[in-house]
C-alpha cells in the first residue's frame, strides 16, 4: 500500500511536469521547503532558511541570493534564523546537520557556535528581546532538549526537555503582564505552546 502511494505520487508529478503545471515558482532561486524567515534589526534585509540553505533579500523578498554558511558543509538545511534585535550585523542560523552558526557582519561570514550542545540537529532558535546575548536552542535526536547560552552562543547548557511534539519554531517574547517576564513560545506539530522562561 505504501509503495503504491509513493508510486502514484511520482506518476502525478511526472504528469504535472508534462502539463506544465508543476509547482516551480522558486526553482530558479533554489529555494525549497522553507523553514524560517527573519529580518535584521534595521528592517532592511530579509533572511530565509530553507532545505536548500540560507538566502538573503535586500528588496523585500523580490530577489534572493544564497548565503554560504560553511565550506565544510556546502549543503545545509537551515531550520531557524534569528536576528539580534539591537545589532543589525548579528545574525544566527540553526541547521539540521551542523548546529548553530553566528555572523557578526550582517551575514557575510559565519562561524560555528556549538560549544556545549549535545547534538547538531537544531529545530529552533530564540533570542531574548531584552538581553540579546541570551538565546535558546532546541536540539532534536542526539542530545535532544532545550539549551541556553548567555554569551551569544559561546557556551550552551542544556536546561529543559522541551515541549511535546516536533518543534518547528521557537521565540522569546517579552509579555507585558503584571508579572512581566519572558515567555518561550514554541510552534510544534501539536500547535503553539508557551512556557515562562524560568530555565
Amino acid at each position: 500500500m505504501h509503495q503504491w502511494s509513493r508510486a502514484s505520487t511520482a506518476l502525478l508529478t511526472v504528469l504535472m511536469l508534462l502539463a506544465g503545471i508543476a509547482p516551480s515558482s522558486f526553482a530558479a532561486a533554489g529555494v525549497e521547503h522553507v523553514h524560517a524567515l527573519a529580518m535584521e534589526a534595521e528592517g532592511r534585509i530579509l533572511f530565509l532558511g530553507a532545505h536548500t540553505g540560507l538566502f538573503r533579500s535586500e528588496d523585500g523578498g523580490r530577489s534572493w541570493r544564497k548565503v554560504p554558511l560553511s565550506t565544510r558543509h556546502p549543503h545545509l538545511d537551515v531550520m531557524a534564523v534569528v536576528a539580534d534585535p539591537k545589532d543589525p550585523l548579528l545574525i544566527y542560523a540553526g541547521t539540521h546537520e551542523a548546529g548553530v552558526f553566528r555572523s557578526e557582519d550582517g551575514g557575510t561570514t559565519w562561524k560555528e557556535a556549538n560549544a556545549g550542545l549535545g547534538g547538531l540537529d537544531i529545530h529552533g532558535l530564540a533570542i531574548d528581546p531584552n538581553v540579546p546575548s541570551k538565546l535558546h536552542a532546541v536540539v532534536r535526536e542526539k542530545g535532544e532538549g532545550v539549551y541556553r547560552t548567555g554569551d551569544r552562543g559561546g557556551k550552551w547548557v542544556r536546561v529543559d526537555d522541551g515541549p511535546a511534539g516536533e518543534v518547528k519554531v521557537l521565540a522569546s517574547v517579552n509579555i507585558p503582564t503584571g508579572m512581566g517576564g519572558i515567555y518561550l513560545y514554541a510552534g510544534t506539530a501539536e500547535g503553539l505552546q508557551r512556557n515562562p522562561d524560568c530555565f
Binding site: F26, V34, L37, M39, G43, G60, P85
Partner: peptide, 24 residues
Amino acid sequence: AAVAVNPRKPDEVYVSTTDGVIFR
C-alpha cells in the same frame, strides 16, 4: 511556512509559503 515582522515597521509583515513564495 514562516512569518517575520519588520522590527522598524510593526505593520510590515512578510510570509513565505512552503515552496518559497513571498507575500508582504
